[in-house]
Design a binder for these strands. Sequence first.
RNA 1: GUGGGCGUCGCCUAGCGGUUAAGGCGCCAGGUUGUGGCCCUGGAGACCGAGGGUUCAAAUCCCUCCGCCCACCCCA
Length: 418
Amino acid sequence: MPDLRAPRGMHDLLPEDEALWRFVRDTAERVARLFDYRLISTPIVEDSHVFLRTVGDESDIVSKEMYLFDDRGGDHLALRPEGTAAVARAYLEHGMASRPQPVRLCYFGPMFRYDRPQAGRYRQLWQFGVECIGDASPSADVEVIELQRTLYEELGLGDLKLRINSIGTAETRRRYVEALRSHLEPHVATLSRDSQRRFETNVLRILDSKEDAEHPALQSVPSILDYLDEGDEAHFTEVRALLDTLHVTYEVDPRIVRGLDYYARTVWEFEPAGAGGQSTVGAGGRYDGLIELLGGPHTPGVGFATGIERIMLNLKDRPTAVEAPRVDLYVAPLGEAVNGAAMHAARRARAAGFAVRAGFPGRGMRAHFRAAESANARFIAIVGENEATRDVVQLKPLDVTDAEQREVAFDHLAEALR
RNA sequence: GUGGGCGUCGCCUAGCGGUUAAGGCGCCAGGUUGUGGCCCUGGAGACCGAGGGUUCAAAUCCCUCCGCCCACCCCA
């Protein structure tokens, strides 16, 4: 057992996982393009205030999960725990408010949260996310949900369940939190310790406690939907109407509250049918107050983020057609003396766009064939003394049994590989 | 942060007080002195997670630590 390992909760992505990973990434970028969302890459590190100001002091992300450090110049930096605040910062910094609104952006990259790892939860996690900034209409919410739904469908995860809710504006939540507090107050003593703590810090969080889910006080809890104001109500109604028109199936779940403070109005989650554990594959919401928290003008926005590892987790349970990578040609030099000639042959093939695995001298014929086999090569080119002096190779197809082998000059190698 | 399970070659697993620590996959080589996939033979590869203790004897029992996994919390 080596004494140096990858940091806790962080993982190496091995070549054999690459194909599936690339499939997910390519699909995400392709679907984003279908909706005209453009890729933006922000630094992995931000001024810590980008998150401290926006995410919410009571959130676990800020209170215990951030990787914080000071650099040599004394700047307070954070490894980004999520993408939205960083994208919003870039929107502001680059004056994107003066572009045609809304601005449609997407990102793909690693996020960092110092948390105890478990199934589907990592300290370095990859997210794909989408942000539609600068438009307050329900159409924007639905466009983002539709993009996310399309993505899952294209990935083969079309059976994920969508649950949506509206948590109103900050004012709505103030009134609701008050009602929630007075509803729960008489029962505090009988709630779990965690919920008792949350009663003081963040009452909304009690709603998604697994421990107290069966508690009578929670069964009879008031619904936030009854506290929406007229504008919230109209917005949510329109979102649902549009989803219905598109035949998107969803379930309204008044228990959904997002972990981050900047959310407003529409919030949603996608999870597998047999939910449990760290099951949420992707979640999103509207964040009309976020850019103000960063010191900008009031700017509406809506987006989602989805966890790549969680997508992979769900993908691994089902048959996916991801073809194994293969090589066009394996070049087998028989001895040191012909190594240069073999390298020339390889260069010719590569120049024509063929993938070539170079065998190195010092191995026997059988070893070369086995290596070519394991590279899943279409052809093997044998270069011995006899061939090297005449600039030719013995070329043999490997896919068929008892294939005919023929002599091919370097000059004709590319066409022979076609 | 809390609770539970587990750590034996690169991977999977056997062994559960006395074995040169076993097998499969993979890797390397030979059988075929320049021709693959199958088969056969051989080889390399493990201070049995670390440290301490019990014992004539510890991979096996006990303690501590570390790591991984799972659940809670929280979240993607």
